[in-house]
């Protein structure tokens, strides 16, 4: 087993365990994780109270506009962001691209996002995340997808939403779907759970564990279209543990102020007086794309299996 030399006479400290991987996500709960493309943006995010940043070369709105193949970011660019802040830094690898994940582990990234926002590298298999000592977060649109990712070793789930749109409708759809399925699952008897597991194509043991806990066995954030403090609080009230904000902050008129307002909205998600206060005078929100005007082919949430 991996060791790090920190002991106190009993066992040697053990790194990379499931508890330790899931544990970091538990420390991020009630927080906001922000997409950043430069060390300066990372500082703005940290100063606003972000619990972590996602380092990437282009935010999803620009990936959408740019087209072409979207890949892991340059390690040099990611390291520049890791040096700029003390909060955890995440970075994206393509779905199924385990070598990109190996590279991110080698540079000491705190979390890998195996993300549908990048162009998938494998249309059948996701990364076997048990092989890594660093934790992974994966996207999901429903309970079956979430539990398949957890079976592969994901230590954190984010509902996908539709990244780079600024339209919260898909984030709501996916959170309601996943959380609603869990609510239905908790009402089933043990015999019915076998068929439920078969129908959602998820391992029975994880279905049973989810039923017993009444929630996913790992932390579950919302993502994909959150652009305002009210959007963030909406997702929290629906029952997620925190939010990712991608394009919504640095595509807006006053990123520093909006970032701080979204952080405060997530903490005080149940307090409309605070929400009213932090929603004022934020400048222009990102313009956005209405998801209902998009074809299925234009939706990146479809990626992942």
């Amino acid at each position: 087993m991996a060791t790090n030399g920190h002991t106190n006479g009993h066992n040697t400290g053990e790194t990379g365990t499931e508890t330790v991987k899931r544990g970091l996500a538990q420390m991020l709960k009630g927080g906001v994780i922000m997409d950043v493309v430069t060390p300066e943006q990372a500082k703005v995010a940290e100063d606003a109270g972000a619990v972590a940043v996602m380092a990437l070369e282009r935010i999803p709105a620009d990936i959408r506009a740019h087209g072409g193949v979207a890949r892991m970011s340059d390690p040099d660019m990611i390291e520049g962001i890791m040096k700029a802040v003390t909060i955890p830094v995440m970075a994206k690898a393509r779905i199924g691209h385990f070598v990109e994940a190996q590279i991110l582990e080698a540079i000491g990234i705190d979390y890998v996002d195996e993300s549908e926002v990048l162009t998938p590298a494998d249309e059948e298999h996701h990364i076997n995340k048990h092989k890594f000592k660093i934790p992974f977060v994966c996207g999901a649109r429903n309970l079956g997808e979430a539990l398949r990712r957890i079976a592969e070793g994901a230590a954190m789930i984010r509902t996908k939403g539709e990244a780079g749109t600024g339209d919260v409708v898909e984030a709501v759809r996916h959170a309601r779907t996943l959380l609603g399925e869990i609510r239905r699952l908790t009402s089933l008897d043990e015999d019915e759970m076998f068929t439920f597991a078969k129908n959602i194509q998820a391992p029975y043991a994880l279905v049973k564990e989810t039923a017993e806990l009444g929630r996913l066995p790992v932390v579950n954030f919302a993502a994909g279209g959150v652009a305002t403090p009210a959007d963030a609080a909406l997702m929290m009230q629906l029952g997620v543990d925190g939010v990712f904000v991608g394009s919504g902050i640095f595509k807006s008129g006053d990123p520093a102020k909006r970032a701080k307002a979204i952080v405060e909205a997530v903490t005080h998600f149940n307090n409309p007086d605070v929400l009213a206060k932090v929603s004022r005078n934020l400048g222009e929100a990102m313009v956005g794309i209405s998801v209902s005007s998009m074809t299925d082919q234009q939706k990146i949430a479809q990626r992942g299996w």
Binding site: N4, H10, G108, D110, I134, P135
Partner: peptide, 27 residues
Amino acid sequence: GRQIDSFEVNLDIAGIEGGPFPAIFIR
């Protein structure tokens, strides 16, 4: 260090009876 160095260890704690405590260190 970073998350990759987070670890678990059994720890003797003064005042906590009943053997070492399973301590989880995360960043």
